[in-house]
Every structure is written in C-alpha cells, then in structure tokens.
Amino acid sequence: MSNQKLHNDVYSDILAFVEYERGVTHPISVYRSTSDLTLVVPRDLLIETLTKLKEEHHFIYLVDIVGTDRFVEGDRFEILYNLIDLKQGRRLVVKTLANEDTPIVPSASAIWTNASWHEREIFDMYGVHFTEHPDLRRVYLPEDFEYYPLRKEFPLLGIPGSIDLPTSTPDQEASS
C-alpha cells in the first residue's frame, strides 16, 4: 500500500496534469498495472500530450514504442510509448489506440528522433501507418512481403510462397 502511495507522490504532477486536461474536456484515463503509470490518450490528442510531457515534465528519453494487437473489432491496435524522465528517474507509459479499418496514428518522430525506427517496426509488424513520418518503410521484412506478421491472424509458419527463395540453379552472372 505504501508502495502505491509512493508512486502517486512521484507521479503527482502527471496526475494533476491529467486532472487539468480532464477539466478541459480531454478524456485521458489513468491506470497502473504492475508499477509504471499508464495514461490512455485519444489519438487526436497524442502529439499534444507527448509534447507537453517532454517539454513540461522532462520526459526527454524515449525508451521504446510497443505495438500490440488486441484482436477486437474497432480499436484493434494499441501503441504504447515508454518514456523516461531522467531528472526524477521515473517511467511513464502513454497508450493510444488505432482503428482496424484505418490504422493511422500521428508520428512522434518530430518529438524524439529515435521514434522513427520504432514506428517503422510497428508499421512492419502490424501495418499501422504513421502520418508525417520521415521515412516509413519496413524495417525487417523486404518491401515485397505483403502481410503483417504480428497480427494475430497471421500463422506462425507464414504463408507459403509469400516470400521468395533463391533459385537453386547457379547464377550465371555471379559464377562467371
């Protein structure tokens, strides 16, 4: 219980910020699963919130962006931003949801440069598009691959023939 209280103390300015935003009609909800505080932010407020967190609350270090597939209709994909406040030594998770039909989320790469590759990874794995991303390409799989492997409906062993194997006849150009 004391642990919980301690955490609320550490995060008091964030909770005040959430309360304030809520007063201005912005529906940000807060929950805590194991240890880190998680804010659930609607998509259209995402960039605004992240910018405020960076500039006013010193979350200048982006650790990771995680995409998950909830496999439900509607808001199917979750994008989680794992942030660190280097001044006070605390972690914060910001979560937003992306729709199944139009999976489009604004890019955070203008706020933290390293968001770029993490967003490319999510695009590669889930097919979530990030608007205003400087270089949205697949990061792992070749562009010729058509599927998004971490979506739940994609089979573990892949789809036969979806990705080429080299021919087993010697390449004349290379072997000559």
């Binding site: 799989l141 080299p166 087993s168 390449d171 290379a174 072997s175």
Partner: peptide
C-alpha cells in the same frame, strides 16, 4: 532468413 538466403546463394555462386 528468407531475406538473407539470396545473399548466401549469391556468395555460393561466386
């Protein structure tokens, strides 16, 4: 990996 296999095959051919 499938992506690497083309490079491996090319090296073998060379």
């Amino acid at each position: 990996s499938y992506k690497m296999s083309h490079a491996v095959r090319r090296i073998w051919d060379q």
